[in-house]
Design a protein around this nucleic acid. Structure first.
Lengths: 188, 188
DNA sequence: CCCCATTTAGTAGTTGGTACTAATTTAGTA
DNA sequence: TACTAAATTAGTACCAACTACTAAATGGGG
């Protein structure tokens, strides 16, 4: 049954809605022990949109996040000579960096290189058997990472591919991938 | 100005809504060249919920995807002796597998191992310098991957950590990670 | 031509609001 | 303490995008 001061209440309101945009004015009014009208006024001065709009915005994020995160391929593969060489471009966005700074999480650099290797193999399904990688320099939010891959060897069902990734001519990542050609129906 | 047969229209309706859940009955009515009432009847027999509900469901998905994908740590770290050993458990969900089958994308296994290594180092910021990894067996949707890590060596600012990941006693992944202790303010 | 399925129209009620005015309560101060 | 201004609450009309219902119109096959 606590009554907050206007200022505190508005801060709390903002916080609550940030944490849970699904809260309606009614629920917020109960939680903050004021009338619905007060909540509406508060939202107005704080420029917080109504429930429907908030939900819609969250929902629209799906497309972005899905397209960024659920893609099979990390980075855009721009230039592939099958079983020979290839290039992939990857722009580091919010979703790829650590929450508390602008450093790119290493597994996206790995994923870019790995995706590129998979794309270069001209069989229905290629699996990564092993990799030997090195992170040379940190990569940051907004960086444009260009990965170049070259097949260095193919023995039987295994291809060895060397990948070098650059941010503006600076080598940030190198890796050597062994790719395994998986045949149809095989479970390995 | 095409008029569809009932059956065709209902199939189209389903398709449209799947592709874009943001479509209102009004928009659908226009697109299918029937009245709003017909759309409502169709939705009713097809058990497709109303606009608001659809949006809300999509929005709720965001939270799931976000929590799965935007975490800094892949897998739950359950048991860490700093600078010594650690264990992480990672359940393979929809978001982690290739779109056209149930195979786990390799970079999540890498990410799990890598996250675990970072967590084991008792400094504000640890960076992966290099890694030597092997994918031994494919991992599938629903699998529970348990990664065990052990520090095998620490020389100066570099620790070497060995990671072995299992799905029900089957070794699916091994890796050796070189972690670099980054000091405050250093940019490397 | 009739009949039944299909489609459309129309009404009342719901949720979660906007936008507005007006009344009431609370707090600060002379 | 009385007055005033700020803050809060109440109340009204309106909106989108529905549900749930009834009723009327249309259309096609036998």
């Amino acid at each position: 049954m606590v009554k907050y001061k206007k200022e505190d209440r508005q801060k709390l309101l903002k916080l609550y809605i940030e944490r849970d945009p699904f809260l309606t004015d009614e629920a917020l009014a109960e939680r903050l022990n004021v009338s619905i009208q007060t909540i509406r006024l508060d939202r107005q001065v704080l420029k917080i949109p109504e429930h429907r709009v908030r939900i819609k915005r969250v929902a629209e994020e799906v497309d972005e996040i899905k397209s960024i995160m659920l893609e099979d391929v990390i980075g855009e593969i721009v230039n592939v000579k099958l079983n020979e060489s290839g290039t992939s471009v990857f722009n580091v966005e919010e979703a790829h960096v650590f929450n508390n700074n602008t450093l790119t999480r290493g597994h996206f650099l790995f994923a870019q290189a790995n995706s590129l290797c998979v794309a270069m193999i001209n069989v229905p399904l290629a699996l990564t058997k092993s990799a030997n990688i090195e992170f040379r320099k940190p990569v940051h939010l907004g960086d444009r990472v260009v990965a170049h891959a070259k097949v260095v060897q193919t023995i039987g069902k295994i291809a060895t591919i060397r990948v070098e990734s650059f941010v503006e001519d600076i080598l940030v990542f190198v890796g050597e991938f062994e790719m395994y050609f998986k045949n149809e129906g095989e479970s390995k």
